Computed example of a mutant assay.
Amino acid sequence: MPLFTHIVVGTNDPERAAKFYDAALGGLGLEGEARGPLRFYRRDGNAFVVGPPRNGDAATSANGGTISFFAETKAAVDAFHSGGCANGGVCDGPPGRRANAPNNAYGAYLRDPDGNKICAFTFEAD
Rank of each mutant, 00 (worst) to 15 (best):
T60S: 13
H6C: 08
N12Q: 08
G29Q: 09
F20V: 04
P52I: 04
A34V: 13
L3S: 14
D92L: 06
V49I: 15
D112A: 06
E31M: 10
G32A: 11
G26K: 02
C119H: 08
C85T: 13
A24H: 01
A59K: 00
G115A: 05
F48C: 05
G83I: 00
G115T: 09
P52V: 04
V90Q: 14
N100G: 13
E124M: 07
L110Y: 04
R54K: 11
D13A: 07
A62G: 10
A79R: 00
D22K: 09
F121W: 10
P37R: 06
L28Y: 02
H81M: 07
G83H: 03
V9L: 07
A108K: 02
A62V: 14
R97H: 15
F48W: 06
G115S: 09
A18S: 12
T122W: 03
A47F: 07
D92I: 06
P37Q: 12
G27V: 03
E33H: 13
D126F: 10
F121H: 10
N55K: 03
V50S: 04
L3E: 14
G45P: 04
E33P: 02
L30F: 14
V77H: 02
L28G: 01
T66A: 14
R111S: 07
F20D: 00
L30Y: 13
D92Q: 11
S82Q: 13
H81K: 09
H6Y: 15
A76P: 09
G83N: 05
S82P: 04
G83M: 05
A59P: 00
D92E: 15
R54G: 01
I7H: 08
D44P: 03
A17N: 03
H6M: 10
S61F: 11
Y41H: 08
N12F: 02
G26D: 04
A79H: 02
P113R: 08
A23W: 03
T11A: 02
V8H: 08
L28C: 05
G65L: 12
